Simulated scan of single mutants.
Amino acid sequence: MKSYQLFNWKTKPRLVDVPQPTAGPNQVLVKVGGNGLCHSDLHAVDDLCCSPLHLDIELPMTLGHEVAGWVEAPGPGVRGLEIGLPCAITAVGCGQCVLCAQGWNNYCRSRAKQVGMGLDGGLSEYVVAPVGAIVPLHSLAPWQAAPLTDAGLSSYHAVKRVLPLLTPGSSVLVIGVGGLGHLAIAALKAMCAARVIAVDQRPQALELGISMGADLGMLTNDTTAQQILDATAGAGVQAVLDFVGVNSSIQLARQVIRPLGHIVVVGRGGGSIDFTPRGLPYGACISSSFGGSKLELMELLALAEAGRIACRIERHPLSQVDTVFDKLRRNEIIGRAVIVPDGH
């Protein structure tokens, strides 16, 4: 079978022929129906010079962590998953710590190897996943579900963190209408009555944000903060979801957040904040976010299958994965790119 593998750190991955894997105990062999491309994949290829210490990754490794497909063969000891069942693959925790027991597998302190990061991933024709990572699908096609397992889930989790603040008449700012931001807008419109303000540097991205339901779109410039304050009668917004995470986006969030508001920084742009007691309005907070829980993925997939949330997707065959990675590097993907095995 064909797999897109990383052989050495900071080198270009290659599409190679490898044997089809088999599922071991408590594992499931999945026939890949789609794999979403993510900037985290670029980080693994372009930036990492060695394995993260907590994962101890062995190369070669097949890339791709936004995976969905069909159950091909349950491994020994696996029950209740029929061959041909459409499914998505999510990250798993250790299952033993307090955070896992509370349902927050995305914040598990053990940070076990995941499909596409330590375990071979979904830029392939088949992938093996832990049985606990399998989430059944119903009406949603695997190629539609794939980007929801990370991009959609990260956005949905961030939205849920601020949802109690977003009562009717409130406003929320989404900074960065890319692969995650456009899904956050869709989730906001599906889950609350707040007015959604979208900000991005690219006109095409703002057009996407408006098509997903944003009530107001603004190009980033020196007057953006004042425009947001004017649009909220000087009061600012109850919540900010920052999918960029650079210094300028965090500063914009600080300028427009209300007292008792919440800024969630999802983007990994490397920005920072110098905190002082008066650095934010009284009662306001700023937090980081990572992924989402398995339960939240189930909720998100249910919304998608009900037609309440949809991802803007470009589909490309596995044979063109190099070209699509280059488009992602150049920030030319509007929405999310999904790689499917050739012939699908």
Rank of each mutant, 00 (worst) to 15 (best):
I339H: 05
T22P: 00
P259L: 05
A302I: 02
R14E: 15
C94G: 08
P25D: 06
D17R: 06
S248D: 08
R258H: 11
C285G: 13
L99P: 00
Q20L: 08
G176Y: 12
A205I: 10
R312V: 01
K10E: 10
G245C: 07
L303H: 11
L85T: 14
S289R: 01
V265F: 09
L15S: 06
S124Y: 08
P86D: 09
V135Q: 07
A44H: 04
I339A: 08
G283P: 10
L173T: 00
K160F: 07
G269I: 08
P147N: 10
G75M: 03
S293G: 04
Y126C: 10
A239L: 11
D200T: 12
E125F: 09
G335T: 01
I57H: 02
L53C: 01
K294N: 04
G24S: 02
C94V: 08
L140Q: 10
I250G: 03
G261V: 00
L241K: 02
K12V: 04
R278N: 14
S287N: 09
E314V: 05
N105M: 00
A253Q: 01
K189C: 14
Y282T: 12
G209S: 12
G95K: 06
P52T: 10
V264S: 12
G307S: 12
P259V: 07
G343P: 11
V266N: 05
S171P: 02
S249Q: 02
A193G: 12
M1L: 13
L140S: 07
H138D: 12
A225T: 01
K327M: 13
G292M: 05
R161P: 03
C94P: 09
L252G: 01
L81F: 09
V177S: 05
G236A: 10
C285V: 14
G271M: 07
I175N: 15
H39E: 08
V237Q: 05
T149N: 01
P130W: 03
G213Q: 11
S110C: 04
P164I: 14
S248A: 12
I339E: 05
I175Y: 02
V196N: 07
V199E: 07
Y156R: 04
M212G: 01
C192K: 11
V264T: 15
P281S: 11
G283K: 10
A151P: 02
L15D: 06
G80K: 07
M1P: 13
A141W: 05
P142Y: 09
Q201A: 15
R111S: 11
V71D: 01
Q20Y: 00
L6H: 07
P136Q: 08
Q227A: 15
R329A: 11
L81P: 01
P281T: 13
V199Q: 03
A310T: 15
V45P: 04
R268P: 00
G116E: 02
T90F: 00
L188R: 08
G122C: 06
A73G: 01
K2Q: 15
S110A: 14
S249D: 03
C94A: 07
A88G: 09
H157G: 12
L303R: 08
S3L: 02
V159F: 10
L328T: 07
T62N: 01
S170L: 09
R111C: 06
V131H: 03
K113L: 03
H43C: 04
Q251W: 00
L183N: 03
M117K: 00
V115F: 04
V162W: 12
A186F: 12
V30M: 04
D47N: 14
A23Q: 02
Q227Y: 06
E296D: 08
H65K: 00
L42Q: 09
H157Q: 08
